[in-house]
Each structure stands twice: as structure tokens, then as C-alpha cells.
Simulated scan of single mutants.
Amino acid sequence: MHVVMLAYPRMTRLELTGPYEVFTRFEVLSLHLAWRSADPVVDGSGLRLVPTTTFCKCPHADILFVPGSPGQIHFMQDREVLDFLRSQTANAAYVTSVCTGSLVLAVAGLMTGYSATCHWLSLDQHAYFGAQPVAERVVADRNRVTGAGVTSWIDFALTLAASLFGEERARRVQRSMGYDPAPPFPGGSPGRSDPTIVAAVREASIGFQRQRERIARAAAAALKQ
């Protein structure tokens, strides 16, 4: 099975390499990091990653995956990227994402009529694209599987693995990775966090979120034309 994973500049590295780590533990999966060229892409923290294939040479996906990041806003109206995702979805058994990668899928018209999640600060933007925003860590709606914020990659990948290979195999991978989360602080979601901390996080990102909101609205309007 071919897993096509979009690798793009300014992505959040963990949202790509995290699921990649889980998927490599299933030998039947062939992983492809796809971008428009074979040149290294630089993630949001400055790490260079080398695509393994280009859009024009990429095999057809059985599983399509899109990570998120602040860099996601640069591709919300990028016809080449969106057309690539649409073409890869045609025969895909699963269309998936982590964080705001689901908004890129939404802009491509690939989440309309589906429930989806993403980072909590941008979750409501799914409604612009005819998707149902759901504030859960992982949301599976038919063949769409989406994860929430950055750290949801483990839950996302294990959920997808269970759908593909059964719960027992997914449980073995979870145990082999030592996944036994015990965060040092409570409040990993807005509903369980100190309201002052939630407000501070919102305030710190308000300028960027307004920019993302404007781009999402414009992309949604273009999609309807």
C-alpha cells in the first residue's frame, strides 16, 4: 500500500515524522514524501527534509496524508498543491491529516460533508468548507481520519493502523513505542485548561489567526465559484 505524505516548507516536522515512525512499523506500507521538486524542504524549525518523490512522479495513494503547520496558509490557494491532492484522492482508501493539514484538504474540497478536527485555534474554520468541526483528538468519518493538534499524531496514527491492520497489531505497536502518556501539567485541551492560559495562548497568536481566517474565507469563497 502506498502512503503519500505531503512534505512542504514550514510544516511542523513532528506532524509528518511522527506518523511516519508509526507507519514504518508495518512492512506492507510503502511511504512517499511528496513535494513539487526533489529539493530539500525546510520545516518551521529550520530542519531540512528531503522529499522522496515529486508530484509528477508520485505513485497513486492508497493513503493520503497532509501534516499541518503555520506554513499551511501558503498553500491554501496554491493550485498545483491542491490539484495534486485532488488527484491523489481519486483512488485513495483513506484521506488523512494532522492539525491544520485538514484545512488544506478542506480547501481542495476534500472534506465537504465530512466531520473533521484540527488545532483548536482553527477548528471552526472547517465550517467554511462544508465540513463539521469536531473538538476531538482524532475524528474518523468514513475514510477521512483527522488528528487535532501537534501531539495528536500518535493517537491519529494508531487509530488509522487499527483500521488498517486490526486493534491487536496497533496495540503491539503502541506498546513497542512505550506510548503511555502522562503529561507533566493538566489541561491539554481548552476545556480542561486554566482560562487565563487559554486566553494568553489566543492572544499570542491573534495576529496569525486573523491572517489564517482571512485566507480561509477567501479560499472558501473561491471554492464555491
Rank of each mutant, 00 (worst) to 15 (best):
V173Y: 01
G207T: 13
I63F: 07
A108Q: 02
D83W: 00
E168K: 01
R36V: 07
L158Q: 02
E15W: 06
G188C: 11
L6I: 02
A108F: 01
F185V: 11
T151V: 09
A116F: 10
V95I: 12
T196M: 10
G130C: 12
A90P: 00
A200C: 11
T52V: 08
S193Y: 05
V198W: 13
G46M: 03
Y128G: 04
E203Y: 14
T89F: 02
A90R: 14
G101V: 02
E15G: 05
I63K: 05
K224L: 14
N143G: 01
M111C: 15
G113I: 05
A222Y: 15
S205K: 14
A131E: 10
G149R: 07
S189V: 13
D78A: 08
A219V: 08
C58G: 04
L14P: 01
H74W: 13
Q88K: 02
A140F: 06
V138E: 04
T112K: 15
K57C: 11
S37M: 12
P184I: 12
A162C: 09
W120H: 13
A61C: 08
P186G: 07
V104R: 04
E213A: 12
F55Q: 02
A218I: 05
F26Q: 03
F165D: 00
W153Y: 15
L103R: 06
P9C: 10
P59T: 05
L49R: 05
C118R: 03
R36E: 10
L82Y: 00
W120D: 03
T117A: 09
A222L: 15
L223D: 05
S69P: 02
S69N: 02
G68L: 05
S122V: 07
A38M: 14
A162K: 02
M11V: 08
Q225T: 11
F55A: 01
S102R: 06
P59L: 04
S152F: 08
L6C: 04
A148T: 04
G44R: 04
